[in-house]
Amino acid sequence: MFVNKGKSGQLSDAMTWIIATIIIIVILVVFFYASSILAKAKDLEVNTKLLFVEGGENNMGWFYEKTSLAYSINSNNKLKIEAWINEDKKS
């Protein structure tokens, strides 16, 4: 009586699927984490009325323009005024 026990077949298929399952779960977790990060990026912060000046600072804005125009009328105490305004940016 000769019993041919095949070395390939059921066990190797099952091992393949176990590895595939683990890989699928890891990829799903990664993409789920990425989607949650993208959801947090929905907090919008947009600066309206930006004044774009070549070579100017990135934080130029509408209020900066108002202050600049006021300096053209009366530029006394300029350092004191700028220090007070910059207190806001530091806080």
Partner: peptide, 21 residues
């Protein structure tokens, strides 16, 4: 399904923009 619901269930927070306006 979980990924899509996580993304679309969180609303856009535009209050910073409203405060600026």
């Amino acid at each position: 399904f979980m990924m899509v619901s996580t993304f679309y269930n969180s609303p856009y927070d535009v209050r910073g923009l409203e405060a600026e306006i």
